[in-house]
Amino acid sequence: MTWDEINNLQLDDLMRLPLKTKAIIAAIIIVLLGAVAWFWFISPENDKYNDLQAQVETLKGQVRQKQLLAADLPAYQAQILEMKHRFQRFLEQLPDRAQIPSLLDDVTLAGRSRGLEFTLFQPLPEVNKNFYAEIPVKINVTGTYGDIGRFAAAVAAMPRIVTINDISITPSASASGTAPLDKALAAQKLEMSCVATTYRYIEAKVEQTEVRK
C-alpha cells in the first residue's frame, strides 16, 4: 500500500481491511496517543510529583532536626542558666567603683597586720578590658619572707578578686650586703615590689537597662 492509497482511505475501506491489519492500525494509534499523552500530560505531572516529593523529604529532614533540638532544649536551657549563675557569682567577686577604695584599704591592712611596712602604694591608671577594667596598684613593702608569704595568702583569700603580679624580692638595703641570700630570706628584712590588681565590672549596659525600667 502506497502513501497515496493511505491518504485516500475511507472509513468503508478501513472496515473492509483484514482483522490483523485493523489490529496493527489500532495498536499504532494507541501507541501514538500514549506517546502524546505521556509527553504532554503525564511527564510534566511526573516532574512536578518528583519535585514535590523532594520538597517533602527536605521538610521531613528539617522537622527531624527541629525535633532533636526541641528534645535537647531543656538541657541547653539548664546549661545557659548554670552559666548565668556562674557568671553572676564571678561578677559578685568584682568590686564596683564605690568598693575600690575600701578594697585597697583591705589590701593595706592585710600587709600591715602581718608585719609588712609599706614604702610605696601607688594606684596606676585604670585599664579598660572591654566588659571589665583592671585597677592596678604598685606596691613596695618591707618585711621577712614569712611576712610576705602570709600577706600573699591573705590577699588570695579575699572574697574580692585581687591578683599579685610582677613580683620582685630583694634583700633590704638595711641588710648586710655580704649576707647570703638564703639567710636573708630566713631572718632578715626583704623588699618586695609588685603590682596588685583588682577588677571592676563595667556596668554600662546594666545601667542603661535599669534606666529604661
Rank of each mutant, 00 (worst) to 15 (best):
T170I: 12
D72K: 07
K183N: 11
P95G: 15
F90I: 11
I139Y: 01
P44N: 02
K129L: 14
C194D: 09
M15Y: 11
D12G: 12
D47H: 04
M192C: 08
K66M: 11
V162P: 04
N50E: 03
V107F: 06
V56A: 06
W40H: 06
L181E: 05
D105T: 05
K129F: 10
D47R: 12
V137G: 00
R200M: 14
L9D: 01
Q67E: 13
I80P: 01
R97C: 08
V195M: 05
N130E: 10
I169S: 12
K20E: 14
T197C: 03
S102F: 07
P123H: 05
V36M: 04
W40Q: 13
R16P: 00
S168H: 12
N140V: 11
S168A: 12
D51W: 02
L14F: 09
Y145S: 15
C194G: 06
L59W: 03
K183W: 09
A110D: 11
P159F: 05
R112W: 07
G34I: 02
K138Q: 13
K189N: 12
W38C: 03
A173S: 13
L124H: 03
V63T: 09
P136E: 05
K129M: 13
Q88K: 14
L185Q: 14
A204N: 11
M1E: 04
R212C: 00
T170C: 08
L185S: 08
E5Q: 15
I202D: 10
I80F: 09
D147H: 13
D72M: 03
W3P: 01
P95K: 00
D182H: 13
L109D: 13
P159M: 06
A75W: 01
P18S: 15
M192N: 05
I30A: 15
K138S: 13
D13H: 15
G61P: 00
M1L: 04
P125D: 07
I28C: 11
K205G: 06
D72N: 11
T58C: 02
E210M: 13
A75S: 10
G115N: 10
D182V: 11
F87D: 11
Q93E: 10
Y132T: 06
S113F: 00
A26E: 00
Q10E: 08
L32N: 04
I24R: 13
M192I: 05
L81K: 15
F151G: 04
L109A: 14
L124R: 06
T197Q: 04
S193R: 15
L19S: 15
W38E: 03
W38N: 06
I139V: 14
